[in-house]
């Protein structure tokens, strides 16, 4: 029983540490476009296309 409790405790600490040091720090940013022919693009944050769309959206999201 004691071993089981210790294992559970270790698991909890490991999960917390993983999230603390390797988890995402802020909200994820992303952008995507779909077209009439069924194709779609996912734009990578930091790419010029993403920044172009993000710039337009940011301007509109400002209070």
């Amino acid at each position: 029983m004691r071993k089981l409790v210790r294992l559970a405790l270790l698991t909890l600490i490991a999960v917390w540490a993983w999230r603390r040091f390797f988890g995402r720090s802020g909200p994820e940013e992303r952008a995507g476009i779909s077209y009439g022919d069924g194709s779609s693009i996912v734009l990578e944050p930091g790419s010029p296309s993403f920044e172009r769309l993000a710039g337009i959206a940011r301007h509109a999201l400002r209070p």
């Binding site: 802020g26 909200p27 994820e28 940013e29 992303r30 952008a31 995507g32 476009i33 779909s34 077209y35 009439g36 022919d37 779609s40 769309l53 993000a54 337009i56 959206a57 940011r58 999201l61």
Partner: peptide, 10 residues
């Protein structure tokens, strides 16, 4: 023809 544009920011 653009059918969807989705931009998620902080």
């Amino acid at each position: 023809e653009v059918t969807r544009v989705e931009v998620e920011l902080a």
